[in-house]
Nucleic acid binder design. Structure first.
Length: 219
DNA sequence: CTCCCGATAT
DNA sequence: ATATCAGGAG
Protein backbone atom coordinates (compact mmCIF):
# COMPACT_ATOMS: atom_id res chain seq x y z
CA UNK A 1 0.00 0.00 0.00
CA UNK A 2 1.22 3.49 -0.81
CA UNK A 3 2.04 5.95 1.95
CA UNK A 4 0.23 9.27 2.18
CA UNK A 5 3.30 10.98 0.77
CA UNK A 6 3.44 8.59 -2.18
CA UNK A 7 -0.24 9.16 -2.90
CA UNK A 8 0.39 12.90 -2.81
CA UNK A 9 3.20 12.42 -5.32
CA UNK A 10 0.92 10.43 -7.64
CA UNK A 11 -1.86 13.02 -7.51
CA UNK A 12 0.60 15.86 -8.19
CA UNK A 13 1.97 14.00 -11.21
CA UNK A 14 -1.56 13.42 -12.52
CA UNK A 15 -2.26 17.12 -12.08
CA UNK A 16 0.78 17.91 -14.23
CA UNK A 17 -0.19 15.38 -16.88
CA UNK A 18 -3.83 16.48 -17.03
CA UNK A 19 -4.09 20.09 -15.78
CA UNK A 20 -7.46 20.58 -17.47
CA UNK A 21 -9.17 17.37 -16.35
CA UNK A 22 -12.91 17.92 -16.34
CA UNK A 23 -16.29 16.30 -16.96
CA UNK A 24 -16.38 15.27 -20.62
CA UNK A 25 -20.11 14.58 -20.75
CA UNK A 26 -21.72 17.47 -22.64
CA UNK A 27 -24.55 19.13 -20.69
CA UNK A 28 -25.99 22.60 -20.09
CA UNK A 29 -27.82 22.08 -16.79
CA UNK A 30 -28.19 19.57 -13.94
CA UNK A 31 -31.08 17.79 -15.65
CA UNK A 32 -29.07 17.15 -18.80
CA UNK A 33 -26.17 15.96 -16.67
CA UNK A 34 -28.35 13.40 -14.87
CA UNK A 35 -29.55 12.05 -18.20
CA UNK A 36 -26.04 11.98 -19.68
CA UNK A 37 -24.49 10.18 -16.71
CA UNK A 38 -27.38 7.69 -16.54
CA UNK A 39 -26.79 6.95 -20.23
CA UNK A 40 -23.04 6.58 -19.75
CA UNK A 41 -23.17 3.26 -17.88
CA UNK A 42 -20.91 0.75 -19.66
CA UNK A 43 -20.46 3.15 -22.58
CA UNK A 44 -17.86 5.72 -23.62
CA UNK A 45 -18.37 9.45 -23.06
CA UNK A 46 -17.72 10.08 -26.75
CA UNK A 47 -20.63 7.88 -27.75
CA UNK A 48 -22.93 9.44 -25.14
CA UNK A 49 -22.10 12.91 -26.48
CA UNK A 50 -22.84 11.76 -30.01
CA UNK A 51 -26.32 10.65 -28.90
CA UNK A 52 -27.13 13.54 -26.54
CA UNK A 53 -26.34 16.10 -29.25
CA UNK A 54 -29.66 15.24 -30.92
CA UNK A 55 -31.36 13.96 -27.76
CA UNK A 56 -31.05 17.28 -25.90
CA UNK A 57 -32.42 19.11 -28.91
CA UNK A 58 -35.52 16.93 -28.90
CA UNK A 59 -36.03 16.52 -25.13
CA UNK A 60 -35.52 19.57 -22.92
CA UNK A 61 -37.73 18.87 -19.89
CA UNK A 62 -38.87 15.79 -17.91
CA UNK A 63 -42.27 16.24 -19.52
CA UNK A 64 -40.71 15.86 -22.97
CA UNK A 65 -39.42 12.36 -22.17
CA UNK A 66 -42.85 11.33 -20.92
CA UNK A 67 -44.61 12.68 -24.00
CA UNK A 68 -43.22 9.97 -26.30
CA UNK A 69 -43.58 6.19 -26.29
CA UNK A 70 -41.04 3.95 -24.64
CA UNK A 71 -40.17 2.54 -28.06
CA UNK A 72 -39.46 5.98 -29.48
CA UNK A 73 -37.06 6.86 -26.69
CA UNK A 74 -35.39 3.46 -27.07
CA UNK A 75 -34.73 4.21 -30.73
CA UNK A 76 -33.32 7.64 -29.86
CA UNK A 77 -30.71 6.12 -27.54
CA UNK A 78 -30.27 2.71 -29.18
CA UNK A 79 -26.63 3.15 -30.18
CA UNK A 80 -25.67 3.59 -26.50
CA UNK A 81 -26.38 -0.03 -25.65
CA UNK A 82 -28.43 -1.29 -22.66
CA UNK A 83 -31.07 0.93 -24.23
CA UNK A 84 -34.19 -0.84 -22.95
CA UNK A 85 -33.18 -0.46 -19.29
CA UNK A 86 -31.94 3.07 -19.82
CA UNK A 87 -35.08 4.25 -21.62
CA UNK A 88 -37.28 2.78 -18.92
CA UNK A 89 -35.17 4.30 -16.14
CA UNK A 90 -35.12 7.74 -17.74
CA UNK A 91 -38.87 7.84 -18.10
CA UNK A 92 -39.42 6.69 -14.50
CA UNK A 93 -36.80 9.16 -13.34
CA UNK A 94 -38.59 12.00 -15.11
CA UNK A 95 -41.92 11.00 -13.60
CA UNK A 96 -40.32 10.95 -10.13
CA UNK A 97 -38.70 14.35 -10.66
CA UNK A 98 -42.12 15.79 -11.49
CA UNK A 99 -44.01 14.00 -8.72
CA UNK A 100 -41.54 14.35 -5.85
CA UNK A 101 -39.08 17.10 -6.67
CA UNK A 102 -41.03 19.79 -8.49
CA UNK A 103 -39.36 18.93 -11.77
CA UNK A 104 -35.96 19.91 -10.35
CA UNK A 105 -32.89 17.75 -9.82
CA UNK A 106 -32.32 17.34 -6.06
CA UNK A 107 -28.96 18.62 -4.78
CA UNK A 108 -28.52 15.72 -2.38
CA UNK A 109 -26.64 12.49 -2.98
CA UNK A 110 -29.09 10.28 -1.11
CA UNK A 111 -32.12 11.84 -2.79
CA UNK A 112 -30.47 11.39 -6.20
CA UNK A 113 -29.85 7.72 -5.45
CA UNK A 114 -33.60 7.22 -5.12
CA UNK A 115 -33.97 7.97 -8.82
CA UNK A 116 -34.14 4.86 -11.04
CA UNK A 117 -30.91 4.32 -12.96
CA UNK A 118 -29.01 6.57 -10.55
CA UNK A 119 -26.64 4.71 -8.25
CA UNK A 120 -23.99 6.05 -5.92
CA UNK A 121 -21.45 6.73 -8.67
CA UNK A 122 -23.89 8.67 -10.85
CA UNK A 123 -25.17 10.62 -7.84
CA UNK A 124 -21.61 11.55 -6.90
CA UNK A 125 -20.92 12.86 -10.40
CA UNK A 126 -24.08 15.00 -10.33
CA UNK A 127 -23.54 16.59 -6.91
CA UNK A 128 -19.88 17.19 -7.71
CA UNK A 129 -20.13 18.52 -11.26
CA UNK A 130 -23.56 20.20 -11.23
CA UNK A 131 -23.65 21.52 -7.67
CA UNK A 132 -20.02 21.85 -6.59
CA UNK A 133 -20.42 19.52 -3.63
CA UNK A 134 -17.21 17.60 -2.83
CA UNK A 135 -17.50 13.94 -3.90
CA UNK A 136 -15.42 11.16 -5.42
CA UNK A 137 -17.30 9.15 -8.03
CA UNK A 138 -15.61 5.77 -8.35
CA UNK A 139 -16.10 4.57 -11.91
CA UNK A 140 -14.18 1.88 -13.78
CA UNK A 141 -11.17 4.19 -14.30
CA UNK A 142 -10.90 5.42 -10.71
CA UNK A 143 -11.22 1.87 -9.44
CA UNK A 144 -8.57 0.51 -11.82
CA UNK A 145 -6.09 3.32 -11.14
CA UNK A 146 -6.59 3.10 -7.36
CA UNK A 147 -5.92 -0.63 -7.42
CA UNK A 148 -2.98 -0.59 -9.83
CA UNK A 149 -1.29 2.12 -7.78
CA UNK A 150 -2.13 0.26 -4.56
CA UNK A 151 -3.88 3.30 -3.14
CA UNK A 152 -6.40 0.71 -1.97
CA UNK A 153 -6.53 -3.07 -1.83
CA UNK A 154 -7.16 -5.24 -4.88
CA UNK A 155 -10.28 -6.82 -3.46
CA UNK A 156 -11.88 -3.61 -2.21
CA UNK A 157 -15.43 -2.87 -3.33
CA UNK A 158 -16.10 0.42 -5.15
CA UNK A 159 -17.56 1.79 -1.93
CA UNK A 160 -14.40 0.84 -0.05
CA UNK A 161 -12.31 2.50 -2.77
CA UNK A 162 -14.37 5.67 -2.39
CA UNK A 163 -14.00 5.64 1.41
CA UNK A 164 -10.23 5.17 1.15
CA UNK A 165 -9.87 8.06 -1.30
CA UNK A 166 -12.01 10.33 0.88
CA UNK A 167 -9.78 9.47 3.82
CA UNK A 168 -6.50 10.02 1.97
CA UNK A 169 -7.42 13.13 -0.04
CA UNK A 170 -8.38 16.52 1.47
CA UNK A 171 -12.09 17.26 0.99
CA UNK A 172 -11.48 20.42 -1.02
CA UNK A 173 -9.54 18.32 -3.57
CA UNK A 174 -12.05 15.47 -3.95
CA UNK A 175 -13.71 16.68 -7.13
CA UNK A 176 -10.59 17.74 -9.00
CA UNK A 177 -8.75 14.59 -7.90
CA UNK A 178 -11.58 12.41 -9.14
CA UNK A 179 -11.40 14.03 -12.58
CA UNK A 180 -7.63 13.76 -12.75
CA UNK A 181 -7.81 10.06 -11.89
CA UNK A 182 -10.40 9.54 -14.62
CA UNK A 183 -8.23 11.29 -17.23
CA UNK A 184 -5.19 9.38 -16.02
CA UNK A 185 -7.07 6.09 -16.31
CA UNK A 186 -8.78 6.90 -19.60
CA UNK A 187 -5.81 8.28 -21.51
CA UNK A 188 -2.71 6.88 -19.81
CA UNK A 189 -3.28 4.02 -17.34
CA UNK A 190 -5.67 2.39 -19.80
CA UNK A 191 -7.34 -0.96 -19.16
CA UNK A 192 -5.97 -2.72 -22.23
CA UNK A 193 -2.66 -1.00 -23.01
CA UNK A 194 -1.39 0.97 -19.99
CA UNK A 195 1.46 3.35 -20.89
CA UNK A 196 3.81 2.06 -18.21
CA UNK A 197 6.89 2.67 -20.39
CA UNK A 198 6.39 6.43 -20.24
CA UNK A 199 4.71 6.66 -16.84
CA UNK A 200 6.10 9.14 -14.29
CA UNK A 201 4.58 6.99 -11.54
CA UNK A 202 6.39 3.79 -12.48
CA UNK A 203 8.83 4.04 -9.58
CA UNK A 204 6.01 3.89 -7.02
CA UNK A 205 3.79 1.49 -8.99
CA UNK A 206 4.13 -2.16 -8.10
CA UNK A 207 1.74 -3.21 -10.86
CA UNK A 208 3.59 -1.13 -13.44
CA UNK A 209 6.95 -2.60 -12.55
CA UNK A 210 5.43 -6.09 -12.66
CA UNK A 211 4.11 -5.38 -16.15
CA UNK A 212 7.44 -3.97 -17.33
CA UNK A 213 9.42 -7.07 -16.29
CA UNK A 214 8.08 -9.33 -19.01
CA UNK A 215 8.82 -6.71 -21.66
CA UNK A 216 12.52 -6.10 -21.05
CA UNK A 217 14.56 -6.11 -24.26
CA UNK A 218 17.95 -6.46 -22.62
CA UNK A 219 18.98 -7.93 -19.31
C1' DC B 1 -24.20 -13.27 -8.76
C1' DT B 2 -26.57 -12.31 -13.58
C1' DC B 3 -28.54 -9.49 -16.98
C1' DC B 4 -28.72 -5.63 -19.90
C1' DC B 5 -26.19 -4.31 -25.12
C1' DG B 6 -24.15 -1.42 -29.11
C1' DA B 7 -19.74 0.76 -30.53
C1' DT B 8 -14.98 0.74 -30.57
C1' DA B 9 -10.17 -0.71 -29.58
C1' DT B 10 -6.97 -4.36 -29.40
C1' DA C 1 -12.68 -12.94 -31.63
C1' DT C 2 -12.46 -10.68 -27.32
C1' DA C 3 -12.19 -6.82 -23.95
C1' DT C 4 -13.81 -2.57 -22.54
C1' DC C 5 -16.71 1.41 -21.94
C1' DA C 6 -17.85 7.62 -16.32
C1' DG C 7 -23.14 1.04 -13.79
C1' DG C 8 -27.39 -0.18 -11.85
C1' DA C 9 -31.15 -3.31 -10.67
C1' DG C 10 -33.06 -7.74 -9.44
Amino acid sequence: MLTLKQIRYCLDQMAEMFPDAHCELNHRNPFELVIAVALSAQCTDALVNKVTKDLFQKYKTPEDYLAVSDEELQQDIRSIGLYRNKAKNIRKLCQLLIDEYGGKVPQDRDELTKLPGVGRKTANVVVSVAFGIPAIAVDTHVERVSKRLAICKWKDSVLEVEKTLMKKVPREEWSVTHHRMIFFGRYHCKAQSPQCHICPLLDVCREGKKRMKGKQIDG
